[in-house]
Write a protein that binds this DNA or RNA. Structure first.
Lengths: 101, 101
DNA sequence: TTACATTGGACAAAATTTGACAAGTCAAAA
DNA sequence: TTTTGACTTGTCAAATTTTGTCCAATGTAA
């Protein structure tokens, strides 16, 4: 998973330990370890907190977090690309109308 | 939601009642009504069953079902398009490697 | 009205997710 | 080679979410 990898990357580049971040997140170390390896999914608010703690771009991490969730839904599905295209068009359509209203 | 609308369309065009389909699906009518209106999400196996009962294209309905789920995740998210693009690229990448292995 | 199709809401059962805890691996320091 | 510290694995319970049922309401056509 993309988010976990990015978190690990950021964490290690700053010489931080899982123990330190998990304390700030108020979860235990095993839980943080699992999030980092993608065995468990972080909650939205945890992503925001992590971005803050790692001085990372909140939007970048949220995008990775969303991307991972989408992947969970579509992987192994034959119709994945079709579904993604549908959703993409919907969103784009929405964004258009958003301006004019 | 796309799936519910399509189901309703197919059902009505065949003159079928919610009662009849819900019986086949072994859920009650209110539940079916909710699925049709997108108030509740169908389970994967229910989608397959519905496709069968309505003589519809299984793949089409699955694509709609997946698309709805993706929409649930990304709507109201600023990073929606970015996340969708990520996932799309991932899937495409996967499909490439699939052949060569 | 009456009868039937569909919808809305409250609640329970079932399933999934989240987290804690205990025990494990692994690497480096002592 | 023992010890220490970081991280991982597995299991279980608590919490949350999902799925479904039931009853009542609404709508609609005869």
């Amino acid at each position: 998973m993309k988010l976990g990898n990015r978190i690990k990357e950021l964490r290690e580049s700053q010489g931080l330990l899982q123990r330190q971040l998990s304390a700030q997140l108020e979860i235990d170390t095993p839980m943080f370890s699992k999030i980092e390896r993608g065995e468990r999914r972080a909650k939205r608010e945890q992503v925001l907190k992590i971005a803050e703690l790692l001085k990372a771009d909140e939007k970048e991490l949220l995008a990775l977090w969303l991307g991972d969730q989408i992947m969970e839904i579509v992987t192994d599905e034959e119709q994945a690309l079709q579904a993604l295209k549908m959703a993409t068009n919907d969103i784009k359509e929405n964004n258009k109308n958003k301006d004019s209203e």
